[in-house]
């Protein structure tokens, strides 16, 4: 893979910032990602065990805050678009390929376990922290939300603090 194919990071950041600004101007809210996963999870649980969601506090609070189907949600539409946008980007830059990327020092199995565990922690943390890198940290920074900036500091600070212990996964 040719690294130089990527867009200049400052230019990409500038575009991303303009997109975020446009999103705030049009919709009054920022970008997000983990909320879409939450909507999908809530829908899945509702479909599999409707009586369970009707009796469990989290789902009850969720349906009080969101009217209609959980899938009819701004972030779900946005993330569906993101899948297509990223696919299209991969297509024009010739990066479409099924691969399991990992450091040569670890096995594929280890990488899959890492992705699963990391994803679980991130999914959980994003619920607790009311948003992920996009919804809390980036969008929170744009509107200078105290909570968003604290979450941002702890996502990156936390990652640096733990990085040493997991270095064998990457380098």
């Amino acid at each position: 893979m040719d690294n130089n194919n990527y867009m200049n990071p400052y230019l990409a950041g500038f575009f991303l910032g303009l997109l975020l600004l446009g999103t705030i101007y049009i919709t009054g809210r920022g970008l997000g990602a983990s909320g879409a996963i939450k909507s999908v999870v809530v829908t899945a649980v509702e479909t599999v065990a409707p009586s369970h969601t009707a009796n469990t506090k989290f789902y009850k609070e969720y349906s009080e805050e969101h009217s209609g189907s959980p899938l009819k949600n701004w972030l779900v539409f946005e993330m569906a678009g993101a899948l297509i946008g990223a696919f299209f980007s991969g297509l024009i830059s010739n990066r479409l390929k099924f691969t399991l990327e990992h450091s040569p020092k670890i096995k594929s199995r280890t990488r899959i376990a890492g992705a699963l565990i990391g994803g679980t922690l991130f999914g959980f943390g994003a619920q607790l922290g009311r948003g992920c890198t996009s919804g809390a940290a980036l969008s929170g920074m744009a509107v200078l939300s105290t909570g968003g900036l604290i979450t941002m500091a702890f996502i990156f600070g936390g990652a640096y603090a733990f990085a040493y212990f997991f270095r064998k996964l990457w380098i």
Partner: peptide, 26 residues
């Protein structure tokens, strides 16, 4: 929540938005 996400980041290598971008290209 932020610290747990940081731990998830360094173990999993992605965050939710970027994982969708990664999954989209395979």
């Amino acid at each position: 929540g932020g610290a747990i996400m940081g731990l998830g980041f360094v173990i999993g290598g992605y965050c939710p938005g970027t994982s969708v971008a990664g999954a989209a290209i395979g």
